[in-house]
């Protein structure tokens, strides 16, 4: 029942955000273009590198593009549903506006995470999907319905993992003077999701493949389309999702206990 009430609150927030986006249409178009341009930058990088080489760690140009497209897909979903909310969490804790969320009749983390919805992020989801579909077509892949369904589930796991990463990083604001620049940590870590797992060796492999889930988050769904089912990898991603979400929530709750409001 409580879950249903929270879901209704989320839907109401999404409705409000949509109305707001339509009120500031110019702004919405501008932000959609900004996201589109940043996505193009990632695709351009693949194009430039493959102008000079045939393979990166055994991945061909279109395999790499499929990997990048999968990462972009997860990131667009994060931008649509959670980015603004968590980004503003950092600012709100510093200014004391965070009190407002604590006073609301709902789970604080839920209220913080779902207040805004960014349509500009969502309108670029089809673009990211188009990159994945185009790459799959170039690779002459013919995924089954089951493969596509599991791919969607893994992308969802990716979204939760990206959310957890961002939440854990932004929650550092409870211990710091301000959140200025700390969101850079999220971008620093998620860059690795555009790398093939085979490119990482030694310590980097231990840290970014096994200890942190930043490589498997994109590699597992991309490999599913390219190489078919690999149950071990799928279980790994699902397990990592649950574990890191629990860690992020624990960090947020620890920060919440430390929070003592701010003077105005």
């Amino acid at each position: 029942m409580d879950l249903l009430r929270h879901l209704r609150i989320w839907l109401a927030s999404i409705r409000y955000s949509l109305v707001r986006a339509m009120m500031f249409r110019g702004d919405f178009i501008m932000w959609a273009l900004v996201e589109l341009f940043w996505m193009s930058v990632n695709v351009l990088l693949v194009g430039v590198i493959y102008d000079h080489t045939d393979s990166i760690a055994g991945w061909s140009k279109y395999e790499m593009l499929l990997l990048v497209g999968t990462t972009l897909l997860v990131q667009r979903l994060l931008m649509a549903f959670f980015w603004s909310n968590l980004f503003e969490l950092g600012r709100n804790v510093r200014s004391g506006t965070f009190d407002f969320f604590l006073a609301q009749p709902g789970w604080p983390l839920f209220m913080v995470s779902t207040r805004k919805f960014d349509l500009d992020g969502l309108v670029n989801v089809p673009v990211a999907l188009a990159i994945v579909v185009y790459s799959a077509h170039q690779l002459q892949l013919d995924p089954s319905a089951a493969q596509i369904a599991v791919y969607a589930g893994l992308v969802l796991c990716g979204l939760v993992l990206h959310y957890a990463t961002l939440l854990a990083i932004i929650s550092m604001v409870f211990w710091l003077q301000s959140a200025k620049g700390i969101e850079g940590g999220y971008f620093g870590l998620t860059e690795f999701s555009r790398l093939p797992r085979e490119a990482l060796r030694g310590v980097a492999r231990v840290v970014f493949v096994y200890a942190l889930p930043v490589v498997v988050v994109s590699n597992v769904p991309a490999r599913l389309l390219i190489h078919g089912f690999e149950p071990g990898l799928i279980a790994w991603l699902a397990g990592a999702t649950l574990f890191w979400l629990a860690v992020a929530v624990a960090v947020f709750n620890a920060g919440l206990r430390r929070y003592a409001s701010a003077s105005s």
């Binding site: 590198i49 990166i56 003077q177 700390i182 850079g184 940590g185």
Partner: peptide
């Protein structure tokens, strides 16, 4: 006043460097 934020940002930027080294090393 924001020295820790700058230091953290600089440390995070090392992650970007690791990414660059791996990507271009593989290329």
């Amino acid at each position: 006043v924001y020295r820790w934020n700058f230091a953290i940002r600089a440390t995070f930027s090392l992650l970007h460097l690791v990414y660059i080294f791996i990507l271009w090393g593989a290329a």
